[in-house]
Simulated scan of single mutants.
Amino acid sequence: MITVTRLNGRKMSINALFIETVEATPDTIISLTTGNKFIVLETVEDVVSLIRQYLSQIGLVGASALRHKEEEAEE
């Protein structure tokens, strides 16, 4: 889960695995695979950084990088 701030200042946690897109319009809008959309105070870059940190914490980023490295070695 990542924690972001809604426009009213309230914090909320979102399951980063359900995030489909993050866009600036100029407000930052997070769209989920469920169809829900949230406008948050954080920038797109901040949200992407939070997602990367979360994926790294649960081991998805490292596993992906390792698999990519192994595939390159096989070529």
Score class of each variant (00 low, 15 high):
P26R: 03
T5G: 01
R52S: 09
I30Y: 10
I2N: 03
F38Y: 11
L41H: 09
I2W: 07
T3C: 07
I29M: 11
I51Y: 02
T33S: 12
V47W: 14
S31C: 08
Q57T: 14
M1G: 05
G59Q: 10
V47M: 11
F18S: 07
I14S: 04
D27Y: 15
E42R: 00
V4T: 06
A73F: 09
E42Q: 06
L32R: 03
N15E: 14
G62S: 07
L66I: 11
S49I: 07
D27L: 12
V40K: 04
Y54T: 08
N36R: 11
T33G: 13
G9C: 10
V44I: 11
M1N: 04
T43Q: 04
T28N: 01
G35R: 05
L7P: 06
G59K: 10
T25N: 04
I39G: 00
S31V: 07
G35Q: 08
E75W: 09
S64H: 12
E20A: 12
T21L: 01
L32C: 04
P26A: 02
V44E: 10
L66P: 00
A65F: 10
T25L: 04
A73P: 00
I58V: 15
V4R: 00
L60I: 13
E71C: 02
T43N: 05
E72R: 09
I58K: 09
E20S: 12
I58E: 11
I39S: 12
T21S: 03
R52P: 00
R6G: 07
A73Q: 10
F38L: 03
S31H: 10
G59S: 12
L66G: 00
L41P: 00
K11C: 08
R67L: 15
S13H: 04
S49R: 08
M12D: 02
T3P: 03
M1D: 05
L32Y: 04
E23I: 09
S49Y: 14
K37E: 14
V22T: 09
L17R: 11
I51D: 02
G35S: 10
N8I: 09
I39K: 09
D27V: 13
A65L: 15
E42V: 01
Q57N: 15
A63L: 12
A73N: 08
L55E: 06
L17Y: 13
T33V: 13
V40H: 03
E23Q: 08
E74S: 12
R10K: 15
K69M: 11
G9P: 07
Q57L: 15
G59L: 14
E45N: 05
N8S: 07
I30F: 13
R52E: 15
N36A: 15
N8G: 05
M12K: 03
L60F: 14
E42M: 00
T34Q: 02
I39R: 09
